[in-house]
Nucleic acid binder design. Sequence first.
RNA 1: GGCCCGUUCGUCUAGGGGUUAGGACAUCAGAUUUUCAUUCUGGUAACAGGGGUUCGAUUCCCCUACGGGCUACCA
Length: 516
Amino acid sequence: MTNSRVRVRFAPSPTGPLHMGGVRTALYSYLLARKHGGDFLLRIEDTDQTRFVPGAEDYIIEALKWCGIEPNEGVGFGDGPHAPYRQSERKPMYRQYAEQMVAEGNAYYAFDTPEEMDARRKEAEAQKQTFSYDHSTRLSMKNSLTLSAEEVQALKDKGTAYTIRLKVPQDQEITIHDLIRGTVNFHSNIVDDKVLLKSDGMPTYHLAHIVDDYLMKITHAIRGEEWLPSAPAHILIYRFLGWEKEMPQYAHLPLLLKPDGNGKLSKRDGDRLGFPVFPLEWHDPASKEISSGYREKGYYPEAFVNMLAFLGWNPGTEQEIFSLEELAQAFSFEHIHKAGAKFDPEKAKWFNEQYLRHRDSAAIAQHIKASVARSFGIAENDHRLSSAFLEKAVDLLKPRVQFEHEMLTVGAYLFTAPESYDQAVVEKKWKPELATFYTALGEALNGIQDFTAAHAETTFKETAAAHNIKPGEVMQLLRVIISGQGGGVDMFGMFELLGKEEVVQRLGKGLKAIQA
RNA sequence: GGCCCGUUCGUCUAGGGGUUAGGACAUCAGAUUUUCAUUCUGGUAACAGGGGUUCGAUUCCCCUACGGGCUACCA
């Protein structure tokens, strides 16, 4: 195992949209593969036909693409040497391994019907116990352990539905070596006889993932902590199949927890607390319900991935901003925290803010151009849509927002003249005798040849001085007159951006509105 | 209930037998910006509890408490 090529798989079930915890699992898997120059593959675990959700598989593929964590092998990514990568299409491959275990006495046929199982469970429940199909009960059930070979054959010939169950040996210590948790011991008596092959002929997760990991030469299996309790059964299956030496190294990741209270992060928490739990917006085909996504909320995929990487992992240094490539280099299991991490939506926003700050203004300008045009009804040839104008606006707005789309709301006054003026400021700062000053200022501004921020500021100060007015007395109201708001971007920078005509025009209009 | 995993500031975490227990988010205060935001500076704030082991435990061991996961012919 040590010398073989690193091959890591991400194996989600297409039962709905991939949630951010799943994306994190995919990310860590990708990072590990990338770090070692190995393979990262996507396998779709669709063995439960009753839970199939249309669109879920495409969603998973699109989400991985958006995040930039693309498999180099598997469903949606050109398949590869081990095709097919969809377990439903691999159905014929699994049975023989289950049968092999039956033949060798490590598994058995079970003919118990769902109704019979239910009855047993209810019975146990009545006595405040939990029914478990295991060493203690298997001899009281209807299976090839309790039935004669002839009876079993007769049942099978009749077409009676049956499952194949793992025959867990008694009184054994099963040890698993987890990459994150170290050695974990289980007693075999508490491991139940898991179903390996369902009555519809499909394998369960337990059998399927092992057969596929073995066949696909997987070296590392990274999955959520919820799988730790079934890991001993998985070890047993590898052992019975004679594949223990080829068994991938398991890593059980801590869970993502809700921001408030306790418990694992769920879709509900997102709705309740107003943050996305899915990478992409999801339209549920059955309920028609829409769940928000990081992409649609305006997150950069790089920021989303960076944030996700830090939920349970750290580089051991104080650096927090990492590109995907840097993450791949720095990634290691030693730095994965063992406890679950409460998700903090505020920090997620902070990551986006960092990426926005460092993004090239020209790129942002280009990116928001269409929505600026749409939001403010600006025609294609208008100078406000020129890259020069947009870039300056972006520079002004950049330190004030966490998302690009906020520039349109926070900085609306840069694109369109105000319709109303902050009343509180007007009441506080307006005095009729100031009218002469503002009128004079308009004229002075209009006289500037080169209408730069610096010239506008000088003119403003000179005009104020000439009128015996301290800048502080008229500054904020001037801002309100031009932008409608008492606060905002650097004022003279805004003047330069808007240009002389616009500023003078807004000044005249604003003054009139205030005096009215 | 049983089994397993876990527990450092409000949150994400670093650290590790002897430290002023470090950083980030959030928060508070000051400076800058005559505003707001940015930026800068500073502050508040943590080793769950109890036993060991040890010259010395937050760090190692045990117990307790608390939290989480699992306990399906779901993954």
